[in-house]
Design a protein around this nucleic acid. Structure first.
Lengths: 156, 156
DNA sequence: TTTGAAAACGAACAGCT
DNA sequence: AGCTGTTCGTTTTCAAA
């Protein structure tokens, strides 16, 4: 299942990753194609699943989620029961926007968004009430230098 | 500048965070409002910047970015020159989709997307060629249990 | 001032050349 | 692939509450 995407497809993807509201007309001008040809390519990219969806991105500051946290978790217990409980606990908390099972000596990485330190502490308390964590270290994001959903589709 | 968003605004945001292609008609049915009233709210949310934009999300697997990596960086040198070089280096690499300056003993966290281990190594080599890293540990994502751009706007 | 209906406009989609 | 027509969504206007 190797997809063959040419330079124009990649150009289209690059544009839509930045602004998905572009009309077929606008898009066609940017990539140098007729409106219809362009529209058909977009449709193909959607149907093949390369474009997984279109979402609205919200401003975290304006909604009271100005503090971003990474939680690095090491677990002593690797029994199935603990794992299940852990999964149930983390997935039940919507402030946790990223949940990753890792290789190496780290077991899980969590990414959470909260209002402030106090809100973080509440989240942490709710989490450890649901599942015991033997080793969890939190790091707070001081500055988001980059945060993008865009993949490098146009790579030179 | 405190924004007052009522339950319907939040319902709208919740829907658009999942699917930004919903028409005003569809949206209005889901949130229980007339088409126009709904449309006016969306417009207000856009103008106030609560809705920061609409983007297409692509399938990383289908584009050859199946491996996700977190790089945890500690730096010995905190001189302005090193910092500047570091920023230039990381921001020049588009595979690095997240760049965060942290509090605590971690200095930076990077999130990158690559094809495989070999591609990771190439990225790493390119990075350290641009800026010396005294302490950088990489952790690879084995499983993305959750990865969402959606903020919990509807909280209970 | 806010809400709903409806007209006008523009974009999306399908069929045909 | 391009052209064209029909359908559908968006945006504006207007009238009523």
């Amino acid at each position: 299942m190797t997809l063959e995407l040419d330079a124009i497809d990649r150009r289209i993807l690059a544009e839509l990753q930045i602004d998905a509201t572009l009309s077929a007309e606008q898009l066609s001008q940017r990539v140098g194609l007729s409106r219809n040809a362009c529209w058909r390519r977009v449709r193909m990219l959607e149907e093949s699943g390369v474009i997984a969806g279109r979402v609205a991105l919200l401003d975290p500051e304006k909604l009271g989620y100005g503090l971003s946290v990474f939680m690095l978790i090491r677990t002593s217990s690797h029994e199935p029961h603990w794992l299940e409980t852990f999964r149930g606990a983390v997935t039940s908390l919507p402030e946790i926007t990223g949940i990753y099972r890792m290789s190496g000596d780290l077991d899980y990485v969590l990414r959470a968004r909260v209002a402030d330190m106090k809100a973080y502490d509440r989240l942490y308390q709710r989490l450890i009430a649901k599942v015991p964590l033997s080793d969890c270290s939190a790091s707070f994001v001081m500055e988001e230098i980059r945060e993008t959903t865009a993949l490098p589709v146009q790579q030179r």
